[in-house]
Amino acid sequence: MLKKLLKQNMGTSNLGWLESQFHFSFAEYRNPSNINFGVLRVLNDDIVHPNSGFDTHPHSNMEIISYIVDGEITHKDSMGNSETLTRGEVQYLSAGDGIFHSEHNLSATTDLRLLQIWIIPPKAGMPRLYGSKKYLKEERENKLLNIVSSQDGNSEIKIYQDVNFYVSELEKEKSLDFTLKEKRQVYFVQIEGTSTINGIEINERDAMEITKENSIHIKAITDSHFLFIEMEEA
């Protein structure tokens, strides 16, 4: 089953310094029928304007992945980590019993766009993790790049939950196939451009829930940049 989710039906927020599109209930966007998709609890498409950001704040018992679309993000946390990441690079945080962090766009002129993704961990109180990976464009160009996996998976970034994140930048008219194992499902996000998934068109900032399918065929209608999360069925 393919369920297309149009961007205009998603939650939105504009705080002046931050513009957000909420795929699931978050902050002032409350929709009791749209809390999560399996272990995927939050997916926010954020634009952080210059010289602003998220000041120091706490998290616990959540696995948080940030995928940078444009601009630069500067991270600091209570574990002593500090770094700046840019397009196509990934930051992950398993907050365990508690961590404080900040995320800022220190540029004076350029917006930061990122996907902020929260995954529910297998259980509470797991050891804290932090890390990042500076993936190259060539690694995701016209191919699927597995950017996040479980501890037993194949990605260099490993979190606790049984999920796989894939990204690709697919040139116009090129296509890719992905096989789903039994009792697995996918949440697909069209970051930039337009694709078809099993013949259904999906445009920039739209999403799709994919359940009860054996495979998906992704074709780029324009140059296409997308991310999807593969997980166990709810």
Rank of each mutant, 00 (worst) to 15 (best):
N198P: 05
S25F: 03
I99N: 03
E138N: 14
L129E: 13
E201P: 03
A108P: 09
V186L: 14
D55E: 10
K183Y: 02
Y92C: 02
K174G: 06
Y67S: 00
S132P: 03
Q91P: 02
N51K: 13
I157D: 12
E209A: 12
M208G: 14
A234V: 13
L115C: 01
H49N: 11
V163C: 04
N44L: 00
E201A: 13
Q190N: 11
H104D: 01
L2M: 09
H23T: 14
D45A: 08
T196A: 13
A124W: 12
A234H: 15
K158I: 04
V148D: 05
E192Q: 12
L2T: 03
H101L: 13
L170Y: 05
D206S: 04
G96H: 07
A220L: 11
L227Y: 05
I229N: 02
S66C: 00
P122G: 05
D111G: 09
S94W: 01
L18V: 04
V42E: 00
V167P: 04
N203D: 14
T74I: 07
G11L: 07
L18A: 03
Q190I: 01
G193D: 00
I221L: 11
H75G: 10
S195V: 10
M208T: 06
N34R: 08
E139P: 12
V167R: 07
I147T: 10
E213Y: 07
K219Y: 07
V148P: 00
M1L: 15
K219I: 12
H225V: 06
V48R: 11
I216F: 10
Y135I: 11
L2G: 06
Y130T: 02
K183E: 06
E138A: 15
N51S: 12
I65E: 04
L106Q: 09
N61E: 04
H104V: 15
A27I: 01
N36R: 14
M10H: 00
D111S: 14
S82R: 07
L40C: 03
E213L: 11
G193N: 07
D152M: 11
S150K: 09
T110R: 08
G153S: 14
E19F: 09
R184V: 05
D97A: 14
I229Y: 00
G80L: 09
D162M: 15
R41P: 01
G71H: 08
I147P: 06
G88K: 05
E63C: 05
E89F: 01
